[in-house]
Design a protein around this nucleic acid. Structure first.
Lengths: 350, 350
DNA sequence: ATGAAAGCGCTAACAA
DNA sequence: TTGTTAGCGCTTTCAT
């Protein structure tokens, strides 16, 4: 005899399957006394419902959507791929996930797209967007119409209904700081920090953490204010050139944004100072190459596959009101050096 | 209309459900012509079978067992916990996993336990044991009786039927080397390597990788032969004392084994040389403390939760002859420093 | 060699 | 308020 089933429950509680189902799914229309009897029975026989069977019976389809920036950088593309991959391996799990691209820096458009989402189109949404008032409000509105939501990669700390799937950016900044401090040995000099925009909360948090560590090494490392590229190649080239001209002895560079190939090109154009330690974010084809050829020393990254799968699990858990395994959903701040580069994935299937 | 089902298949192929099932599960007793018709139909309508439904109908139970060393170190205990946790979250997935402890260094006993496993008790087994001829043969024998097997944490490169779930130890050793080289800055001095026993293939591979990197820094880092503790506290204290007495200027220590608390105590008793960089393996409560208080500088680790879940997925995939998502099963070589220490897990449930 | 039918654990009309 | 019953997609006797 295996695990207890609804039948056992019904028998023990002295009710019909339908009633069991009603209390199991809180459908109401059941006398409190009956509810209690069933709940008691659940406890007593240690019943735990079989979700696959439930899904089968319901022919439930979880319709999830990922809202991604329409930015064409490698990191976003990797996320896109990871989603596609998840989609394939999820066919069996009655889950279809689709992708919507929205202008990365247009809070109104993003909020609008979110508002467009309706319960009869989608059950859950993962949102990757900078935190703004508009977006935050739109997310809060999702709660009312019962759409589950996850803050994806970018945290939305003021939208209480959005569970965050991503790394702690302040800790990531600290990690970058520690690596930079270690890797520069005992050398003295300047540290330059570059990002796309300091408007983004992620950048602010990373900088915060980075500075916390740099402060401990203030006697030898002089950290400059953050430079912003605005994702513009020309501007990037210009500010890097200016900075390189005016900064003596650059011993470290911290690139806080993803999509750093432009920036790296600009830096290379100016000449990488000898022994200069360069640290960036997100393991992509580009940064992988940089690690191998030694132009970058360390990359701080998060596993996009894990990110995507975790989001999907959390969304489904919220939709079905089931719990998740906390430890499985924690996204690690991974440090990638030349020597622990994961091999490229060649094949699928066992 | 959703995904095509067996019914659609039967209709299109002009056969009954039973026949469809026969060819789907290669049960035989079907005319080749019929088989072909069904296979054609599968292709034409893009049928992909619903595993949960199949499991439901079969009332399949996947009975898995983990064979762990009876060693009582923290790493093994963490694995134990991770397995228990997986067990809980797998109830819904018709999977029960149990644990068997075997004497870590008794190949005969291990082989014997493996041989004891029979198809009507267990469907798959994850084996964590040092590679020896006896164990390898026992694993190979499992193939004959159709029990799926996974080499867990310790690779079994000569047992072709054992898929390896764990990290590349040679790369792990290289990573340790790179970290040690970076963290020692430009300092000159001795590097000591300690492990439980060099008998184990894991230690050999790590040492190999470590040496490969050390060779590049031979001008300033002098690496000594590996010292073996044999997991014996007294011996550990003695060899460390001798080594510390006879080695001038120790700037780095690489602890290749897990369960290093004894070794760390011995080192501390001798006094940690100033600025000495200590690198070890596996993030446990002990190494976590060491990172926080600064007595250790870096820990190379693998996520035990991931290790366990991945093993389970691979085993089930092999049992059902289904494919897995390669990228999800790759175990990363994680580098943990003080600043990217994952927070302790306090709570479960969403 | 093939098919009909019952059933896995759960849900959802429809009755009562 | 409660129960009956027919499935969900697949497997598995037992007939034919």
């Amino acid at each position: 005899m295996g695990k207890p089933t609804t039948k056992d429950l019904a028998r023990v509680a002295g009710v019909s399957l339908a009633t069991v189902d009603r209390v199991l799914n809180r459908r109401g229309g059941v006398r409190q006394a009956t509810v209690d009897r069933v709940t008691a029975a659940i406890k007593s026989i240690g019943y735990v419902r079989d979700i696959s069977a439930a899904n089968l019976a319901r022919s439930t389809e979880y319709r999830l959507v990922f809202l991604l920036p329409d930015h064409e950088d490698e990191f976003t593309r990797m996320i896109h791929l990871a989603i596609d991959e998840a989609n394939v391996s999820m066919v069996h799990e009655r889950t279809t996930v689709s992708i919507m691209r929205v202008p990365a820096n247009d809070p109104h458009r993003i909020a609008q797209e979110i508002d467009e989402l309706s319960t009869d189109q989608v059950d859950g949404v993962a949102i990757m967007a900078p935190e703004t008032a508009q977006v935050r409000d739109a997310i809060l509105r999702l709660d009312a119409c019962g759409i589950a939501v996850v803050a994806f990669v970018s945290n939305q700390p003021n939208a209480a209904n959005a569970y965050f799937v991503g790394i702690n950016n302040e800790a990531a900044g600290r990690t970058a700081g520690q690596l930079l401090a270690c890797f520069t040995g005992e050398r003295q000099g300047a540290v330059r920090v570059i990002t796309e925009t300091m408007q983004s909360r992620d950048s602010q948090e990373r900088r915060l953490g980075f500075d916390a560590i740099m402060a401990k090494h203030a006697s030898r490392l002089r950290v400059y204010p953050s430079m912003e590229t605005y994702a513009d190649a020309a501007r990037t080239a210009k500010i890097v050139a200016t900075a390189w001209r005016n900064t003596p002895e650059i011993v470290g560079v911290y690139l806080m944004h993803h999509g750093i190939s432009e920036t790296m090109r600009a830096i290379e154009a100016q000449g990488i100072p000898p022994k200069c330690v360069i640290i960036g974010h997100e393991l992509t084809r580009h940064t992988r190459t940089r690690l191998v050829d030694g132009t970058m020393d360390a990359v701080i990254t998060q596993d996009v596959g894990h990110l995507v799968r975790s989001s999907i699990r959390v969304l489904k858990a919220r939709i079905t009101q089931i719990g998740t395994v906390a430890s499985q959903e924690r996204i690690r701040i991974e440090i990638i050096l030349r020597e622990n580069l994961p091999e490229d994935i060649k094949t699928n299937g066992l």
